[in-house]
Amino acid sequence: MATVSASNIVKRFDEVLAVNGISLAIPDGEFVVLLGPSGCGKTTFLRIICGLERQTSGDLVIDGNIVNDVPPRARGVAMMFQSYGLYPHYTVRNNIAFPLRTQRVSGTEIEKKVKWASRLLGIEFLLDRRPRQLSGGERQRVALARALVREPTALLLDEPLSNLDAKLRASARQEIKQFQRRVGVTTIYVTHDQVEAMALGDRIAVVDHGRIRQIGTPTEIYDEPADRFVATFVGAPPMNLLTHNGACLGFRPENFLPREMMRDGAVTEFWFRVDRYEYLGSERIAYGTIEGFDSTQFITAKLPARIAEESVRPGERHLFAVHRQDLRYFDHDGKRTRGH
């Protein structure tokens, strides 16, 4: 277990700037999520940390040592790949044992550790199978066991849940989190799924175009987005943005409610014309436009499903409001400002 810190990491592939100066310090045992759209450079950054790619410039420090020129095998980090990268010709036992074999660990020690790791993940009964005989969830556990068996300095996870179906994903997410708490290993987790990021991360780093847009706790990222990109990337549906004279006003769909539902406090009112509804069981998403603003700007409101559809009819305008403290302001560069 160790600290990982990157300072001003740049990676250039010919003309493409994949990573454009990422600096990030991760204390021992923290769970950091790199969140960003595909192609934003998050996986490249992960590959730089484990040594599969060499950064064009910048320093990488693991456990207090600069590891820029240290090959992957000597970095002591473990990585779990999107497709798991299990060795198809080995049994689960040999898959888990492989990282130990490369470190020339003795046979009895290997056996002990494989047993430990497989018990930790509840896969003892799979040890003699081959990867192709496993389900997606089982493969994921084997990959995790293989990553953890040599007690890595840091655990890197590259979209580990994207190959699982939606139901399994939720439980696997839970397991990874509990598991990381128990083992206490410094973890860097890459995903494009904001739900995963919110659920898992002690801190989230939102990455776009090879740069970190914002780094903070899930609450900070969600409630205090540093710019328009973060505001619209995190949250489903994303934050509403109203452009006015170049500047931007933002508010979350769940904070945009019919005026009569607001009790007290300072509010800003809007005339909202609902276009259509999406019923999602626990809530109802209303899509529409706000009068007085550009009618191509679609605005969403997330209403509790108990509000009857009749109270706010599609096609009619209705007075909606947002609490003043829920309004966020962005300047014409998209950066967050204090407001009026």
Binding site: L52, P72, A78, S83, Y84, G85, P99, T102, R146
Partner: peptide
């Protein structure tokens, strides 16, 4: 991924 996994595995 398999080659990379082996590389990272040491």
């Amino acid at each position: 991924d398999i080659i990379d996994a082996a590389t990272v595995d040491g």
